[in-house]
Amino acid sequence: MQARNVLGTSAPLDLSGDPRRLRKERNVRWLFLSAAVFTILVSVAIVLSLVGEAVAFLQSIASEIDEGLGSLMADGWFPRRDRFDLRTIIWHTLSVSIIAMLVATPLGLGAAVYLSEYARPGVRRVLKPVLEVLAGIPSVVLGYFALRFITPDILRNLWDTAQQSNLMAAGIGVGILIIPLVSSVSEDAMQAVPRALREASYGLGAKKWHTSVRVVFPAALSGIVAALILGLSRAIGETMVVAIAAGATGGSLLQLNPLYGGQTMTGAMASLAIGSDQVAGGVAAFQSLFFVGLLLFLMTLVLNIGSERLVRRFRQRY
């Protein structure tokens, strides 16, 4: 006797369902997949547009300017006079970023350790939103604050040589901007440290501060370093604070003293962008925008990948 299925026929039962429904499922899946693949297109478009114009920039300064590629090491960054000294803007970017990190590291880490280890839930609920509100302040606002409060009311009182626009004020402004980032990423890292480590420390008789500083902090170190790297990357790429508060919009010589104005990589891009609708200067000035953009893109990419690696290594350990 032949095997019969539920319907009483001998044909194998088709369980694949309504073909219309299946088609719909496939189409929806494709729709979502293409949205995800679109993000790759965005990256490709960014890289292509940067690389294309950056190469064109190198070609045009090599062929059209007397000094050729030497203009990348000329005196100062004056794109409208064909002087493209990269050392100047890279150094200024570094000095703004270092000042920013000097502000954000103690304030951000201190806040993170407090929120993660010390704050009682009630205190936490009140104080944590402070950092979230600070994170929501647009960077133009901090630029204005740096230019109109930090410089005249703080820096000028400490050093009367400080210029009206200076790298120090911009650095402090950028630092304030990245405090919430540093603090939230490193707080996450400390929260991920297992309770058992803290309990073992208390069990051996260690005090609270000893446990926080000597046990939890080192255990979360790679996550904390990742937070700092991420902060540095954000500081390097921050534009508006620098564009408003660092001064030297026309270009600048290499400035070692942070109390003077100077152009950073992003500051240089912003001021070139303002002129871009009037085509000020030669073609090379406009193309240099993309060359600096490519440098900036690569620098932040390396930092972001480095910080991502650290976070992943840290996650694997616990």
């Binding site: 995800a36 693949v37 993000t39 790759i40 965005v42 990256s43 478009a45 960014i46 547009s49 940067l50 294309g52 114009e53 991420l230 990357s233 390097i236 790429g237 921050e238 534009t239 992003t266 891009m269 912003a270 962008a273 871009s276 925008l289 993309f290 953009g293 900036l296 893109f297 932040t300 990419l301 972001n304 990948i305 991502e308």
Partner: peptide, 25 residues
């Protein structure tokens, strides 16, 4: 994994670089 890594990196690209994308594309 490539898609995820790419999106993470896009989130870290400085905003002014997106301006360059907007200008040229």
């Amino acid at each position: 994994r490539l898609l995820v890594a790419n999106i993470r990196n896009l989130a870290g690209v400085p905003s002014i670089v997106y301006g360059l994308l907007g200008l040229s594309v």
